[in-house]
Amino acid sequence: MKTSIDLPDELYRQVKAKSALEGKTVREVATSLFAAYAAGETAPRADDDALARRSRWLQAFQRLGETMAREHPGGGFVDQLQRDRR
């Protein structure tokens, strides 16, 4: 079935560019989104994106802690962080 949808120009440009980078057509992207919606699947919420960013930040923070533990055995992390002004 052929249909028309009125989309904001900027949104369409973004979808067109991203789909081209992925080697897909806008039609393929739209069809997969409609199919997912019809199947009851939902798109990731903005909260999910924020959670993923926090998770990456937390992992980076954990790696920093592990590095500090290796470089400064015996603790004193707070003192070392203050000296390093991290």
Rank of each mutant, 00 (worst) to 15 (best):
R86Q: 15
P44E: 14
I5K: 03
D84A: 09
D9G: 15
T67S: 07
G74D: 11
Y12T: 11
T42C: 01
A52E: 13
S19F: 01
A20G: 05
Y12P: 14
A39V: 01
V15L: 11
D84P: 05
P8H: 05
R45P: 02
D6P: 01
R45H: 09
H72R: 03
V15W: 05
T67E: 12
T3K: 01
T42R: 00
Y37T: 10
G65W: 06
M68Q: 01
D9P: 12
E22W: 00
L81N: 02
Q59G: 13
F61S: 12
R83V: 05
V15R: 00
D6Q: 04
K24C: 04
P73D: 15
S32Q: 14
D9T: 09
S4N: 07
Q80V: 06
T67F: 08
D6F: 04
K18A: 13
D47I: 02
A36T: 00
E66Y: 02
S4L: 09
D79A: 13
S32W: 06
L64N: 05
R27D: 14
A17T: 02
K2Y: 03
G40N: 06
R13P: 03
E71F: 01
H72M: 09
G75M: 07
F61T: 11
D6A: 07
F34L: 09
L7R: 02
L58D: 15
D79G: 09
K16T: 04
T3N: 07
A46T: 13
V26D: 01
I5N: 00
G74S: 12
H72P: 05
T42A: 02
A36H: 00
E71M: 08
E28A: 07
E10S: 12
R53C: 05
P8N: 08
R63H: 12
G65T: 02
R86T: 15
D48N: 04
Y37W: 07
W57K: 15
A17E: 14
A35F: 03
G65Y: 03
R83G: 08
L33G: 02
L33W: 02
P44H: 08
T42D: 06
R70T: 15
E41C: 03
R83T: 10
A46M: 11
V29T: 05
E10W: 11
L33Y: 05
M68D: 12
R56A: 12
Q82G: 12
W57G: 14
A36W: 00
P44F: 03
